[in-house]
């Protein structure tokens, strides 16, 4: 089990959190102008790197804050997102 550093509650067990996937996916600024391919990119395509990954976590069984960390997808090491 990973120890995840919540910005408010400090380090807590992984099973207090929900995973939110890749960080930094912004809603399209002009959704009415998007092509089907651009919608597919926004809705379905996410990075899937072998290595460091910026991702969202939700402290659902704690302070209920969403936050962003960087985690290594092989070692599971977590560091603060820049």
């Amino acid at each position: 089990m990973m120890l995840i550093d919540c910005p408010f509650c400090g380090p807590r067990d992984e099973n207090e959190f929900h995973y939110g996937g890749q960080a930094g996916i912004a809603y399209p600024e002009a959704p009415g102008e998007l092509s089907d391919a651009e919608w597919a990119e926004y809705v379905f395509m996410r990075d899937n790197p072998r290595g460091w990954f910026r991702e969202r976590w939700f402290h659902g069984l704690g302070c209920r804050t969403w936050f962003t960390v960087e985690r290594h997808t092989v070692t599971h090491e977590i560091r603060k997102a820049p």
Partner: peptide, 13 residues
């Protein structure tokens, strides 16, 4: 396990 990983291991819980 909910998170992305290539680590070929998961959490005990």
């Amino acid at each position: 396990d909910a998170y992305n990983s290539y680590g070929q291991r998961g959490a005990f819980h």
